[in-house]
Design a protein around this nucleic acid. Sequence first.
DNA 1: GCGTGCCCGTGACATTCGTCATGGCCGGGC
DNA 2: GCCCGGCCATGACGAATGTCACGGGCACGC
Lengths: 201, 201
Amino acid sequence: MIRVLLADDENLIRSALRALLSLEDGIEVVAEAATADEALAMARAHTPDVAVLDLQLPDRDGIALAADLRRELPSCRTMIVTSHGRPGYLKRALAGGVGGFLPKTVSASVLAQVVRTVHEGGRYVDPELAAEAISAGDSPLTAREADVLELAAEGAPVEEIARRAALTPGTVRNYLSSAASKLGAANRHEAVHVARRHGWI
Amino acid sequence: MIRVLLADDENLIRSALRALLSLEDGIEVVAEAATADEALAMARAHTPDVAVLDLQLPDRDGIALAADLRRELPSCRTMIVTSHGRPGYLKRALAGGVGGFLPKTVSASVLAQVVRTVHEGGRYVDPELAAEAISAGDSPLTAREADVLELAAEGAPVEEIARRAALTPGTVRNYLSSAASKLGAANRHEAVHVARRHGWI
DNA sequence: GCGTGCCCGTGACATTCGTCATGGCCGGGC
DNA sequence: GCCCGGCCATGACGAATGTCACGGGCACGC
């Protein structure tokens, strides 16, 4: 019996997934959590074999949670399920030792199959997502450029970004400018969109 | 037996919901669809009693779909389930005759209960969402302001917005300016964020 | 009929933004 | 040791943007 931990902040989805997995032979959902902290606590208490994590949790993202789980419970394998299949996340997840990465568009049978694969130490990545990730490649942005672009995401003026990043307004504009040109965007706001789409910020 | 149509573009969620609802007494999922068009076709073929619709479908949103369904199949009641509980959508949905509006954070039992309530002609709105909607109030934007702001959402320059809206650049700037001031934003990009958060665009 | 609000436009102004050139400081690779 | 690339900054210029004042047309309610 594969013992599964489910972490998703959306109650409905979580219990629906539970219902779905419970129909499968050899799979048992032993714990549920709505937040990353809760998931960690549940994992300690129930020592699941596989943790199925939503990418976006209220307190931190599923990838960070997966890293925590690996540290605390090395025997527990992890997989990420998400609505937003951004390539950047996939890369981060794989680098962090996550065993599976699926969009929520896959069918139920695929989910169950991947739980089994991951449990056996295998890896599975949605082919479509993998293709996107390969074609998207690495972020061309430097760490600082990404920082600044992130702060620009809410439409704040340069002045405020500069304060929040502890930089001069001039420097901020330079970074934004170079980021936008690297991303092929006409201005920073378009750049934000491009970077978001690729999962680079 | 309440005959239910399920529309959600995420395969996993859809079949999970199906599994969940199938566990309930007196509820039967008779059709599933991944797009609005597909949902319409399925509704014609299966004449469900209640349609459970995701807010965001690939071709158009769940509220528009609900309106189509009401026109084509007046006997079929509709309810919306969503991850993004923006107040503006709730208002639009209710105005369009939708019987239920739920965030995906509710529990499974609530979902089933709401399906029953809606089937009997009742209405149900998540209390938290309702509170948000009331406090958020109506959009202060005029139709045109909202249009223009929408076009500005992707970071396009004024020039392009003007072309796409068949307006003069000057007029566009006036609209954006007044929209931003109404929303208490320092610039149009911040205004886009505010309007998005409230569900006004 | 008259005010009011939305629609659309013009023109002018100050501010912000995007771009470029330039320079110094660091750390890593050859 | 030297070059390169990332990091941070300055200054300056033109272009885009935000703001304001003002005008006309149109529909609506009173």
